[in-house]
Design a protein around this nucleic acid. Structure first.
Lengths: 343, 343
DNA sequence: ACGGTGTGAGCGAACGTTCGTCCAACTCGG
DNA sequence: CCGAGTTGGACGAACGTTCGCTCACACCGT
């Protein structure tokens, strides 16, 4: 258990009887102008001593850490978790490590996180936290110090934005409901101040407009991405518009709350109320009823963010608005044709 | 957008007209034996130049990175995500950053992840991946190179283990079911080769034994922590023992699958089959019906792991088996007294 | 006038690498 | 037998810090 000091390349070199720079060449460097025997000797010495290169020192001279920073919101949120995990794996595939920071609720510590990331000299940063949409300090740091890619707009721009087509998401979900004959279609949204919420809301309105349906304000209830918020919003909707027959929910997780509230209110899904949500998290299929939902390519988003970031780090010019990733409706059981019970 | 080079402390010093070591003292070091005016000059110079200390260089000389590594399984698993997020936040509270690596499914890349962590000279490592329970290579690296704490047993020991009382979890869940009058109590488990599964199974058997009930083998079905696996296991159980009236499920996520399978099979929960699971993930309350479950202190586990690790890093002797965290039954609606329909 | 004591700041060394240059010893063709 | 080329390896410098020692100078009491 007595942890030994790390052995340095100099000790390896000494044991192999060569200069440490030569050892460096064969152990880590590229151009090996060394005889086979010497190389062999160095390698076995390293092995015997349990040598592990010190990336810190390497980073110092190479002025690159092969590390990217990821600032995520409290990734208890499954959607964010999906994207971050995929991002980390993609980064690692490209030889990069990932330093994470999870915002506390409220997200006030965004700038602090980004600052430590910068001081640790990450090669780039991925921002995956809706909270920073309003954080001008974070935006400034990102623009000034380090290549970055964001999963949501940052104030003032200047940071490439990856993501999916949120407006289309709203449109797709809503028009599916319309296609099923629903006319009183409500929506449980994310927080209004988030772009993604507004985009999805626009999609919802687009679809209603196309179908020449009204979009009365009291069919819209604001949630907070949590099941609880979803449940409360659903209750509000039911109270304000008892004849509501369909709801578009802005996330699968909120849909859980909506389902639960509906169940308690004695409304059956999908017979009495049809639900379409979005994300398609892994267990959407296992809710009761299985959720009809618009699949948002979360993992793909994470991967794209990394790829873009890596290109940006490599000095490539990357578009500030790369094409939005496509979304796709996944039909399951939570939305059925409207039952014309009371005609 | 044209990213500038980072400015070093030497440039700050030059602008302030002092030696760089003096600048170092006031900017980062502790003992400031410097006049107020000089300090002021240095500070403003740093500010004007946008100086950010280079932690890499600092780490090199101080031989500590204030970074801990976290190797987690594909943290799409909510339980693991809870623990890792909490761990990261706790680490940050203590001034440490977190470098993460998520195992790929199968977990074959565990050693590779740990190796890069070591090469990056993390001060310690937290292992939060059941897959490494069998990975002797990871275990060896952890023992040899770096202080570590694990959330599951590592082969050969030598790494402190934090976690909750899994056996008690199984016992609590099962005896709740027994208390409700159930006698044909099945269980949907995690993978048999995991310790946590075996411990919970022992708890289940303990409870049955205490109540002098049989524990026939065909009441036990193996799952894989996924909703899908849970659903399949539940179907198997139903098929093998149609008269089953209660099921203890080894995770809330699998319980989703169980609920879904039961629903499809036309069995009502809790009237026909009572369900108790464990974890108490944030939305357990919003499933239909709300899940009666044994709360496992996931976040607390993550925090405890960090605290222990930090102490170990500080050179303190830490127990290899710190006390298990307590679990607690949360009664909701998925388990009801047995209906004696056919008497 | 003198030794002692602070105070403010400079300076060399070290951390563990990589990178490029330099050099000695061979090899080989004529 | 000599010079050119090649091969194998040594070596100095640099990356950006921290740490501890040194040192000049002013002030003080006797």
């Amino acid at each position: 258990m007595a942890r030994r000091r790390y052995v340095s390349i100099k000790e390896v070199a000494a044991r192999a009887g060569v200069s440490f720079q030569t050892a460096s060449k064969v152990l880590n460097g590229g151009d090996v102008r060394v005889s086979a025997e010497t190389a062999e000797r160095i390698l076995t010495a390293a092995d015997e001593l349990g040598y592990r290169p010190n990336t810190i020192a390497r980073s110092l001279v190479q002025r690159t850490t092969a590390t990217i920073g990821l600032v995520a919101s409290d990734a208890t949120d499954i959607a964010i978790a999906q994207a971050s995990v995929a991002a980390e794996q993609e980064a690692r595939r490209h030889g990069h490590s990932v330093l994470v920071g999870h915002l506390r609720v409220g997200g006030a510590d965004g700038a602090a996180i980004v600052r430590t990331l910068i001081e640790r000299r990450v090669d780039g940063i991925i921002a995956a936290a809706p909270e920073i949409e309003e954080d001008t300090e974070v935006a400034h740091l990102l623009r000034k110090y380090v290549p970055a890619v964001s999963l949501q707009a940052v104030p003032g721009g200047g940071v490439p934005l990856v993501g999916s087509n949120h407006r289309e998401t709203g449109r797709l979900a809503t028009s599916h409901l319309i296609g099923l004959g629903h006319t009183a279609i409500g929506t449980v949204t994310g927080p209004f101040r988030r772009r993604v919420t507004r985009s999805r809301l626009h999609g919802y309105e687009d679809a209603l407009r196309e179908a020449r349906l009204e979009a009365p304000e009291d069919l819209v209830a604001e949630g907070d991405w949590s099941p609880k918020g979803g449940a409360e919003a659903a209750r509000l909707l039911l109270e304000r518009s008892p004849d509501i027959s369909a709801i578009f929910v802005h996330s699968d997780i909120m849909a859980m709350g909506v389902l639960s509230a509906l169940f308690r209110a004695g409304r059956r899904v999908p017979q009495d109320v049809a639900i379409v949500s979005c994300d398609d998290i892994p267990f959407a299929e296992f809710m009761t009823p299985p959720l009809t939902t618009v699949r948002v390519p979360l993992a793909e988003t994470g991967r794209q963010a990394v790829d873009l970031l890596l290109r940006s780090i490599a000095g490539e010019q990357v578009p500030e608005r790369p094409p939005l990733l496509p979304v796709e409706l996944v039909v399951r059981a939570s939305a059925a044709p409207r039952e014309r019970t009371n005609e």
